[in-house]
Structures are given as C-alpha cells and as structure tokens.
Design a protein around this nucleic acid. Structure first.
Lengths: 241, 241
DNA sequence: AGAAATTTGTTCGTATGTATT
DNA sequence: CAATACATACGAACAAATTTC
C-alpha cells in the first residue's frame, strides 16, 4: 500500500517542505501562487492553502496578503520539530541530534535524581526492571550485535519516566521533538543508541543513582552512557557546515 | 486597533490552542465538529479546517475521517515549539524554559570553543564589543536596575554567533524554539536574563574562553552565568506539577 | 499618482466517502 | 442494513491587499 489514504493537503505540504529543507528552493525565493500550485498538484486551491498555512506555522515560509509567499531561512526561523524532518542521510544531522540529546539527558538525570517523587521512583524501578528483562531476552535471542525495536521501546519508556520525574515541561517537550518521527527516526536511533542499549552496568548505575537521589552520580552515569557514541560521532575533524 | 487584521483561521487556531494548553479542555475530550465551530466563531468551514489542520500538526488533536476530533495529551505529543505558547503566568514554565536554556547554553559554549572557525571568532569579537558598548550605555543611562530591550537584543545576537559556531543544527533549532514568541516572551526574558545581562565579568570570560578555544573554561563561564537565576528560580521547594 | 493586474483572504454551495448509531 | 453525522474534497465567486505598469 503505497499511499494509505493521506490527505491531499498533506501531500502538498510534504512536497513543499522537502523542497525547502533539502535546499532545492532557497531562502528569499518566492514559491508559486496558490492557483499555480493547485494546477501543478492537480488539487483544489483550499488544499494548497492548508499546506501553505502549515508551512507558515512551521516557520518555513512567510505569506503576505496580495504579495508573493517567500521562503524563509529555516535555520533561523524553524523550531526543533524540524529536526526529525531533515534529510536523514546527512550524518551531521544525526550527530547534532545525538549531541543535543546527550546534553539534555545529563541534565534530566541530575534533576530527576533531585526531584523524583516516590511515585516516580516506583515507576522508574518498574521500567528499569522491564528494560533489564528485555535486554536479557534480546541478548539471549539476537545476540549483542542487533538490539531490536522492542529493547528500544523499553529504553524509551525508561527515559520517559526520568523526563517526567524532572517536573520540567521544557525537557519533556524537547524530548518529544527529538523522537517525533516514528518511522525512519527509530530505525536510525537504534543504531546510534546501540552502545547505550547494551551498557547494562551504566544504565543500572544511572537508575540506582536516581533512586538514591544522588544527582551528581546520575549526571555522571548519563554522561558515561552517551560518551562512546558522542566521541564516535564527533571525531577530531571539524564540523562539516 | 484591537485585531490588527489577523486571519480568521488564526483566530480559531489561537482560541482552540489556548483552550487545550490551559487545560479548559482535557485530553480525550472531543472538540466540536467543523460545522459547529464555524457557527460558533461565525466563520466559514474552510477556516475551521485550516485551524484544525494546524492543531493536528502541532500535536494537539487527532482527527479521524468520519469520527470526532479528539484532544491529545500535548505533554506527550507536543513539541518544544509549544513552550512559548504556554500560559506565561505560570512561573513553572519560566523555570522550565530557563533550565533548558542553561543546559543548552553550557554545551553551546563548550562546543563553540572547540569548533569555532576564524570567521566565527571574528563575528564573536564584533558582537561581544557591540554588547559591551550597549551594556555600558545601558548602565550609564538607565542604571543597573532595568536593562532595556536593546541590551537584550545585543545579548541575543552574541549567543546567536555562539550557537552558529557549534555547527550543530539541533542546538540552533532548539534555541529558535526557546525564543520564538516575539511579544510577551522577550518581556519575560529580560527579567530572567537580568543577572546574565549585567554580569560583565563572566560574559567577558565566556567570550575570551571561546576565542581561546578553551572548552572547559567556556562551559564553566556559561554555568556561572546562569547559576544565579537558576538557583533563584529553583529553590528548595519541590516542583509544582 | 493612479489604474490595472495579480495574489491572498474569505464565503457560499455541493458532492462523496467514512465512521458511528 | 439503514440513517445520521462527520471529515474530505472540488468549484465558483467576491473582497482586500500588493505589485506593476
């Protein structure tokens, strides 16, 4: 099933967004008028309007009444939710995303340790046990080379509890933005999270530190957890740009 | 001028979004049908459609073809771009936003020091000089009590260069999300950034560290810069929630 | 400066497929 | 299975703002 009944306005939105994010159309350029687009995509003008409104909300274009709709520089006007929509073949994007995640994870660990309620700790213990079980099952079944999506889900739920335990809505929303793309992102994520998923010792230390309200130890454990992938993704070479 | 020519679909979108983010309608609830909403707001159904599509994109509602449109739990499905749309009177939101910013700022400082190009350093030096000038002018004119929006702009441009110098698109987009609300947010920001804006010694140390490629010193300076407001916003009391 | 053409903003009407009852 | 409510989609038209001549 190639299309799966996706609304026409979404087709237009995805096409235009891809053009902008990939750089095929550059900031300052004007996009065709609504009537032109409706002819090109063979859809109603209302569908084009919905798509353009969504582009505007995403900070990708600026529309002016009567004038041309111009493409903005999404690097300056776009929000974090664009990250998962960026071309996934770019390893620089993966490095950038992982660096931000590592940065937030360390803070989340520390604040969760400092602020977790008794309910949070109970949830954390349960999730940690579920993750440990999934990990053992995974290693026994698939071997340590390829952690499956089931293990990733358990790990995700573990961090879900930690993020909630910080009581910080900004961490929660940023965390959401980092893994909103359900399809390709998780496939990529399981690659970059491999070292974390299989480092039983450090994850256990992280959970123990949070349960023990030891913020410094929790931060250190989170840093250790991400250190390997971080150095692997950020070698000595200068950033691409 | 009370309305300033804002499109009707945006009026509907803002109203519904405010209802959801403020908790007046709860996750799982159904929102009225398009026809009902078009009658209530006295606008055409197409306008309602655009608004609902945008709510859907923001992760606030889930629409199903023949069924009712249901409200989602935006704490789980929303992205970081929602942060600046949250009710500003909630001090917990301000604390959350500042904590995330402080977390990212420390990493940005360190990575900028490690990766800044010669062009970045030249830009940084220029921005730092402009900020220092604005600061002296501000202190001489208004006194140290109320840093104006001009100083805030100069400070924002200073960090703009630092974020760009990291070569990390994720930091850039997250940074954008944190200050996308141009109106009320900056007014609030100048309050919480007051200690940073007037700490000449530490900002100078930060700039010097980055120019000197001293990542550890840059991180430490950024941490010092945010430490005061961080402790002021996060006292001994447990998080609200 | 002013008029015409272009473009977005908005509304009405209509038809169709889908989910709920 | 039928009826109803709903989202999806298309078409035509006019209003308002901008650009261009």
């Amino acid at each position: 099933m190639p299309d799966a009944r996706v609304p026409v306005s979404t087709v237009v939105y995805d096409a235009l967004r891809a053009d902008i994010l990939s750089g095929r159309v550059r900031p300052g350029d004007g996009i065709p008028s609504e009537r032109t687009l409706s002819e090109r995509f063979e859809v109603n003008r209302h569908a084009v309007r919905e798509a353009v409104k969504r582009l505007q909300q995403a900070g990708l274009v600026q529309v002016s009444h009567g004038g041309a709709t111009r493409v903005l520089d999404w690097r300056r006007t776009g929000g974090l939710e664009l990250l998962v929509d960026l071309p996934p073949e770019d390893v620089g994007v993966a490095r950038a995303a992982y660096e931000l995640r590592a940065c937030i994870a360390a803070d989340v660990a520390a604040r969760a340790a400092a602020r977790a309620t008794d309910e949070d700790r109970a949830s954390l213990a349960a999730r940690a046990a579920a993750f440990a079980a999934a990990r053992e099952h995974c290693v026994a079944t698939d071997g340590p080379v390829s952690p499956g999506p089931a293990l990733l889900d358990a790990y995700r739920e573990l961090w879900d509890v930690l993020v909630d335990a910080t009581g910080n809505i900004a961490y929660r929303l940023a965390y959401n933005s980092l893994l909103h793309g359900e399809d390709a992102v998780t496939a990529v994520a399981v690659i970059y999270l491999r070292d974390e998923l299989l480092d039983a010792e450090t994850t256990d230390a992280l959970v123990a530190a949070v349960l023990d309200s030891d913020a410094d130890a929790a931060r250190a454990a989170a840093a250790t957890l991400t250190a390997h992938t971080l150095t692997a993704l950020s070698p000595t070479e200068a950033p691409s740009r």
